[in-house]
Design a protein around this nucleic acid. Structure first.
Lengths: 157, 157
DNA sequence: GGACTATGCGCGTCGGCGTGCCCAAGGAAA
DNA sequence: TTTCCTTGGGCACGCCGACGCGCATAGTCC
């Protein structure tokens, strides 16, 4: 991975702040000419560091104020059980993150819903119908303290 | 919040896919004229639905392959304990999400590190020094199954 | 029927972006 | 040490396209 130098990281840091900055603005901020800057960006896109450019939406402004942390335990942790569950969970549109955890056969999910009633719907329609599930445990978030897309450490020269 | 109609949601869905699409491309996809489309986007920015535009980076391409779910319990849950902890955690650059959970005095965090050794550094330098912490429990993720910035449900007409 | 909101069209201006070429620095080999 | 080659940066040009404005219009609510 690490053909990235300080300038690349600075470019990425700027694009995290504002992905719509023109190459000219960008070039000024990182101390490069626009063409050199453009070349580096294209390179970062080609090697897959940059996956794309997305709008950053405010969930609460869309009525999504209920974050739930869900822990799911499977009945068995055989390959096919894992695969079946993961295929199913990937199709659940309310899930924003899902990780298979080590040290147990658990999955950790984050689900975002409109309210508690909406989460009940998600629970009934999706979570409780997942294949091979032994146990589901849900915890509601009262407040969001930190939200980031990537650790700041990653973009420090 | 809900002055948003189907067209607004379609615009947002397109911008989640590609925030660099020109207003002309965008307008075609949602079936509007460019000017009308631009007006709606500006409106969405003004009312705070759109927070900004960010590059989408691939953490693994930056060497960040270790996601850790951390649960932290405070000694006391008084106002000042919570405030002190939250101020401290917001300053920790490796934390990508932190929620105060209901039903207990726990915080749920997601931390992204380069590797296990890097997480040990984070643990020593930051987590174990947080004020008012009684207990820290860390679980390592083996695989990322789902990653989204916002539930797909939110943008369905 | 009047007012308001939102759309569509056409225009002009402005600025971005990409290309091609040249230059400087660093490394390797003779 | 000298020379060649490669890598990355800067400059200048020209084309193309986006953006924003103003106005006319349709649909809607009161």
């Amino acid at each position: 991975m690490d053909g990235l130098d300080r300038i690349d990281l600075r470019i990425l840091a700027e694009l995290v702040t504002d992905a719509r900055a023109s190459q000219i603005e960008l070039a000024e901020k990182v101390g490069l000419s626009p063409t050199a800057c453009a070349r580096r960006i294209r390179h970062l896109e080609e090697i897959g560091v940059i996956r794309g450019y997305r709008v950053d939406l405010e969930p609460s402004a869309l009525g999504l104020v209920t974050t739930v942390v869900v822990t799911i335990t499977l009945e068995k942790q055989s390959e096919d059980y894992l695969a079946a569950f993961e295929a199913a969970i990937a199709r659940c549109p309310d899930v924003v993150s899902c990780h298979l955890m080590s040290g147990s056969d658990d999955y950790h999910l984050q689900v975002i819903a409109r309210d508690i009633a909406d989460f009940e719907r998600i629970h009934k329609q999706h979570l409780s119908r997942m294949p091979g599930v032994a146990r589901i445990h849900s915890s509601f978030a009262m407040r969001e303290v930190v939200r980031r897309t990537i650790p700041e450490t990653a973009l420090r020269g």
